[in-house]
Design a protein around this nucleic acid. Structure first.
Length: 152
DNA sequence: GCCAACGTTGGC
DNA sequence: GCCAACGTTGGC
């Protein structure tokens, strides 16, 4: 059981979109970074906790909580030549990119990036490190606990 | 729109 | 395998 922070651009998929989906579940697709993919492929497990983070928007920050609800499977968008996530080097036999399903647990208040940066207990969070831009980053149990408290 | 930081590509 | 050039991310 681990915890993750996953970034999504709310223009693409917001926490409201997730909560409005059937069973509040959405396929997390379009990851095109090997490190992030490897987290999904090698470490994520059903039941892992997710901080749902809005990025590239007026107020970036944690917008909700979610849970991993599937094991990894091939990301269909890599085979779709019309998709911006198309990858000509991926084949059905040898997929390169994967998806996992994420189920929204609750929409929370917006815990902004600016506020996160003021919390001493969170200063080691991967997502807060200089130059960090991975779309999926691990969160420690202590960090998770701190954030849950801030959201109450 | 800028730009720092990081990832990827490709020539050698 | 090195590394320069280029592309992308994402906060500001």
């Amino acid at each position: 059981m681990q915890y993750w922070l996953m970034k999504s651009e709310p223009d693409e998929v917001s926490i409201d979109d997730v909560m409005a989906s059937p069973r509040q579940t959405t396929a997390w697709f379009g990851v095109r970074n090997y490190q992030a993919r490897n987290f999904m492929r090698d470490q994520m497990q059903v039941g892992d906790g997710v901080l749902f983070y809005h990025s590239s928007c007026p107020e970036p920050g944690i917008a909700g909580l979610a849970e991993i609800v599937s094991t990894p499977y091939p990301d269909a968008s890599q085979f779709d030549s019309k998709s911006k996530y198309y990858d000509a080097k991926a084949t059905q036999e040898q997929p390169r990119w994967i998806s996992i399903d994420v189920q929204g647990t609750q929409k929370t208040r917006l815990l902004s990036l600016a506020e996160l940066r003021t919390i001493p207990a969170l200063e080691d969070m991967v997502v807060l490190q200089k130059g960090s831009r991975l779309s999926i980053t691990p969160v420690t149990p202590a960090q998770w606990k701190t954030i849950i408290k801030l959201l109450k």
